[in-house]
Design a protein around this nucleic acid. Structure first.
Lengths: 355, 355
DNA sequence: AATTTTTCTGTGTGCGCACACGGAAGATTT
DNA sequence: AAATCTTCCGTGTGCGCACACAGAAAAATT
């Protein structure tokens, strides 16, 4: 148990080691040269006294200011990516006095080229650390490689590119969140029911994350020998053509009136909820992801039964804080940080503030 | 939008107002006297420039050290109260450099007299701020009154004494968490099932919190017209006599073999889980609270179906941080802070780390 | 042995703030 | 008008650290 109460200063160590404060400073920062003899002596005293530098004084004295840059998808108010941004702002205010400024860059999440362009900009600005949402996996890996070559640490949030060069990852375990969703969906569902799996057509292809969730979802049923107990029905909806979607769904439900459950693996569930509301279809257990858009109202209206969330705000906050902890405070950073898989219902949604 | 980037110092303000830095200092701290004319001039400049003091420099310069004291139930390893303590330690490490020390006092949660004795000790030590678990409501209110008379701020965690003198509260909305539990228990439960409600006999009487949870639980059924759809069976178990409890439960299940669900409103569910395991009773949906003791293993073994948690670690952390934010950083503190009602299953428990 | 080069080491200054102190200006009393 | 008290105000010092700089010691070169 380290001594947290009594204060040990650099000057104390210097006195004990019979050297000047500057020398201690040098061994602490690997600056200049210090004779091997003094070095070991100083280090042993530091160890013995559990010396911990006063971060406040350090930041106050330090000339260098750190520039962190985030690279996230642009968004409209209420959309998913608003949440991580809020977390960034929170972190920014918290570490402002430690000489770190946080800047933001954005890309279009449906356009890989915009990611590449923003990457270019990012690199040219020569930041001290970066936080990236690797929506475009290959492009993100390329960027991270370049950053690594320049010794610029980077963290991923939301999804993990799983390359070798990132400092840390904050995001969900997509597979497991699908698995958890399956269990919740299946719970209390009569055997023989039909389950509707809805995918969204996406210009940039299905996202990695969505796919993993679906894998986990299906794995639950096969792992537990439930695959034959239910009928699975796959359907694809368009991202923007609401009228077409409505027609499609009406068709599906006329053909299969025994659908008792439905799931979507992204945050657009509220669109489906709208359709169900319009078609006056009831008794369908609907599960989706995230609190963005109209999801919360639909949950409260009991059209959506459950939402699964992953604290996107905290992801942004923790990503920035990890950079700060690593660069400014020289702390060790855990590399993979899976966020909790939060289960939200009408009854607990109002208290879901991420303290 | 305040200017977060450019630094404004006291000396800058002084120059602009054509006074000495000491004068600015005086109006910032209401120290000494300053002529009304200069005062307003300085204040308007502060306003205009969005001056925010550098907390780091302030703490570095400040002579005063703050003493925060927590007053929580004593506990054995693995018990509920270990969690808030962890949060306290986290906060302590974080604010150490801001000249605040955090001390801990304990009481026996089954003995009101021990709370009073600890209160005495607490008051005599003359702390700068306190955090209290008001397990004994009346005694806690009395203590908070005395603290208030001495101008010592105090926060409650875990449960709320709901008096007039506390600074802030961090804890669950007990009623609502019972309500949420009811919904989860009822979901998928065949109508006509028998539901077992288990209470623990407690020397010090039923705790306020437990009672509220039960109220919320029952309210769900009456609110939704489900009261007559199920049979409710109440049973009391002893806190320590396991053998007697086993016999009792065996009796109950022999008499009522149609029990399909059971709930306990405290963290001792694992005791019931043990009994069900011993009696080889299956097909009972069991819900309980908190992650302490053997609850997590029982959840993973699927004897417990769901656990409801309320981030006790964060409660301790946030309670201390609230004191710090108020006293040291002069921030506004939200008075009532209900913690999220977290729903935990076998599938998401492994990712439940409170980031 | 005298020099240059390299390695090592101590001192001084300032980051932005709190706080003590001493002195000036004004108000009150003698 | 002189003395005392009160209100007001400016300056100086230190919190613990980083960093620049100059100078000493040691090593390498001439």
């Amino acid at each position: 148990m380290p001594n947290l109460s009594s204060k040990v200063r650099i000057i104390d160590i210097a006195r004990m080691a019979d050297v000047s404060p500057g020398t201690v400073d040098r061994v602490l920062h690997n600056r200049g040269q210090v004779s091997e003899e003094k070095k070991t002596k100083i280090l042993s005293i530091i160890e013995e006294l559990h010396y911990q530098p006063n971060i406040l004084a350090r930041s106050l004295a330090m000339k260098k200011t750190f520039r962190f840059v985030s690279l996230l998808p642009e968004y409209k108010p209420g959309e998913y990516w608003e949440a991580p941004e809020k977390g960034i702002n929170k972190a920014r205010a918290e570490i402002r006095n430690y000489n770190v400024v946080v800047e933001k860059l954005y890309f279009n999440q449906f356009n890989a080229q915009s990611f590449v362009a923003a990457s270019e900009k990012l690199l040219n600005s020569n930041p001290d650390a970066v936080m990236i949402a690797p929506t475009f996996r290959n492009e993100a890996i390329l960027l991270m490689e370049k950053l690594h070559a320049r010794n610029i640490p980077g963290v991923y949030i939301d999804s993990n590119a799983e390359d070798d060069h990132y400092l840390s990852y904050f995001g969900q375990h997509s597979y497991q969140s699908g698995y958890a969703a399956a269990r919740l969906l299946e719970n209390g569902l009569p055997k023989g029911s039909e389950i509707l799996i809805i995918r969204m057509l996406r210009i940039a292809g299905t996202s990695n994350q969505t796919q993993r969730r679906e894998e986990g979802f299906l794995a639950y049923f096969s792992d537990n020998g439930l695959k034959d107990k239910y009928h699975f029905n796959n359907i694809k909806l368009s991202a923007d053509n609401d009228i077409e979607n409505l027609r499609e769904m009406e068709h599906i439900f006329r053909k299969s009136p025994h659908i008792r459950a439905a799931i979507m693996f992204n945050s657009r569930v509220y669109q489906l909820a709208d359709i169900l509301r319009k078609l006056k279809i009831e008794g369908v257990k609907l599960i989706g992801y995230d609190l963005s858009g109209g999801n919360v109202p639909a949950l409260k209206d009991e059209i959506i039964s459950l939402l699964i969330a992953q604290r996107p705000e905290n992801q942004g906050y923790l990503g920035i804080m990890a950079l700060c902890n690593s660069l400014v405070f020289n702390k060790e950073i855990k590399r993979i940080n899976y966020m909790p898989i939060d289960i939200l219902t009408k009854e607990n949604i109002d208290y879901y503030i991420n303290y």
